[in-house]
């Protein structure tokens, strides 16, 4: 067992992954056009791998009142996007939480002073791109 652990650490070192390695630091970019278009209008199109399938299902069920905005879609794109998001969802996370920014792993990585969230260039926790330059490509390990 210690042997296997050691081997794993070597692999981690070789692949340049930091010790805080986290399955969310690199997620697959959005490859579905409908999702990129319809879910990338008001904020960047969040990658399916950032939330578990249960969260995506509830988000897609509630587009009429989407965090206070009307984001409803015609049935065609809605079905396609739902299938894409749930089919490529994260393996972990709490499906009872709708937000990425409420997930435990996310909160752990973002313990900043409250003023940070009030900065004009940030405005919202969901504005991943304000801090992660390559967020749209699914790269969050850029600090």
């Amino acid at each position: 067992m210690p042997r296997r652990l050691a081997a794993a650490s070597v692999l981690l070192l070789l692949s340049g992954v930091t010790s805080s390695a986290n399955e969310f630091e690199r997620v697959r970019p959005v490859t579905n056009d409908a999702t990129r278009k319809e879910c990338g209008e008001c904020h960047m199109a969040f990658q399916p791998g950032l939330l578990p399938a249960g969260s995506w299902t509830r988000i897609m069920d509630g587009l009429d009142d989407h965090f206070g905005e009307k984001a409803s879609l015609p049935p065609g794109p809605a079905t396609e996007i739902r299938a894409y998001l749930t089919g490529n969802a994260a393996g972990r996370g709490d499906p009872a939480l709708l937000r990425i920014t409420e997930q435990r792993w996310w909160l752990r990585e973002h313990r900043f002073r409250p003023e940070v969230w009030l900065r004009k260039d940030v405005l919202s926790k969901a504005n991943c791109e304000a801090c992660h330059r390559d967020a749209a490509r699914g790269l969050y390990d850029d600090d």
């Binding site: 008001c42 904020h43 960047m44 965090f67 206070g68 905005e69 260039d121 940030v122 405005l123 919202s124 969901a126 504005n127 791109e129 304000a130």
Partner: peptide, 8 residues
């Protein structure tokens, strides 16, 4: 422009 809530 800039989305009032999301900053986008």
């Amino acid at each position: 422009g800039r989305h009032q809530r999301t900053g986008r």
